[in-house]
Nucleic acid binder design. Sequence first.
RNA 1: GCGAGCGUAGCCAAGUGGUUAAGGCAGUGGUUUGUGGUACCACCAUCCGGGGGUUCGAGUCCCCUCGUUCGCCCCA
Length: 428
Amino acid sequence: MSSIQASRGTRDILPDEVSYWQRVETIVREILVRAAYQEIRTPIFEQTALFERGMGEATDVVNKEMYTFKDRGDRSLTIRPEGTAGVARSYIEHNLHAQGGVQRLWYAGAMFRYERPQAGRQRQFHQLGVEVLGSGDVRADAEAIALATEILQTLGLKDLRLDLNSIGDANDRQTYREALVNYLTPFKEELDADSQDRLTRNPLRILDSKDPRTQTILDQAPSILDYLGSDSQRRFDRVQQLLSDLGIACNINSRLVRGLDYYTHTVFEIQSDDLGAQATVCAGGRYDGLVSELGGPETPAIGWAMGLERLILLLQQIQPVSPSKVDFYVVSRGEKAESQALILAQLLRRSGFTIELDLSGSAFGKQFKRADRSGAVACLILGDSEAETKTVQLKWLKSGEQTAIEQSALLETIADLRTKISHLKDEN
RNA sequence: GCGAGCGUAGCCAAGUGGUUAAGGCAGUGGUUUGUGGUACCACCAUCCGGGGGUUCGAGUCCCCUCGUUCGCCCCA
């Protein structure tokens, strides 16, 4: 094949699939608006330093997955690999903190990571995220998590697991880190190769190793939850209590750690068993240190991101596509009739009907075939004789029943039939 | 970045060295040039992701490459 194809790890979302995306977008917008979240749109590319500082220079995303390039002014830019850093940057740059109170923001858009494509993982993918900036209240944690579960539940997704953990503050993590390293060092030779390497580099990440032998060793390892300071512990207890009050079931997973450096205290992940290896649909947590790290004021914050491709993968497993239906399919033949049909179509569209005008110019028989396939409820037919008498034939496709209507009276006659149309539409 | 599998028309798919590349769905045309959904008929891959090689002969074997799938790493 010599023609150009979509780049590796990117793909087209064709009309059949777009209806899923639209459904998600509609539901998301409704739920977030009701919770007083405001949409924010930040640039697709940012200065490379933003992501390096925000996500942590030691993370894999920063080290090997970013699309980084120099522009003509020799600036190092990076196409965003995630959304939080850009939102935090914007929050600082526009002094949104000076507006007082809590900023509840959401975004949705394409993110880019140079990774090996796999089911549920692409180089260009889409995330929906929320960021609550300026509140350290545990209710912010609970509210954010509740919104995520609300969205997933409203979309009809079942069998999702919410894992919750606290990774404490920096001090808690430091003491825990030492304890973990002390415990693991004697077992060093028995750990998988990656974990051995992480023992010095990033020991906390050993906790979510998938290697069974490493997991066995970890069974007896100290738990981060035993190393939380009293403040951290109180926070964690409160979050659990609030979630329980909201009727949200969660599973405490003391081995849950997140990949990006900015997380503190609450971390969580929502997973599905129906996605293969890339099981995480939504993940997030508190990041009280990020805004100050990026040069802003001390700002407590919590947020999460959802992978929309993964979400839609799940949606497709439970629901068939609902093709958008046409109210009237307009069939016409003959120069005069065809131009009248065009005018009538526009007239009807203005009063809110969905109209598909047949443009093929082929025989009536062919046009009716297409009318069927369009899923239209009824046909409007204009031929030479209709053009002469300024009438139009209205034919209900299911019953075959057909009547003639004056073109001038079409709008009011059809308006009366609105309920019949919506009824027939629902039937299919 | 590492390991393994796969790649035949818009979609699904047979084919396992012998040459005209099954079949189904979809599509197009017709039976029916002013009336569809059913039925019947016809058409619809000079070509098997791309390139190179082995062979008298390759979709079928080998190599490279691209893409994809599953897993690792990582992550949403």
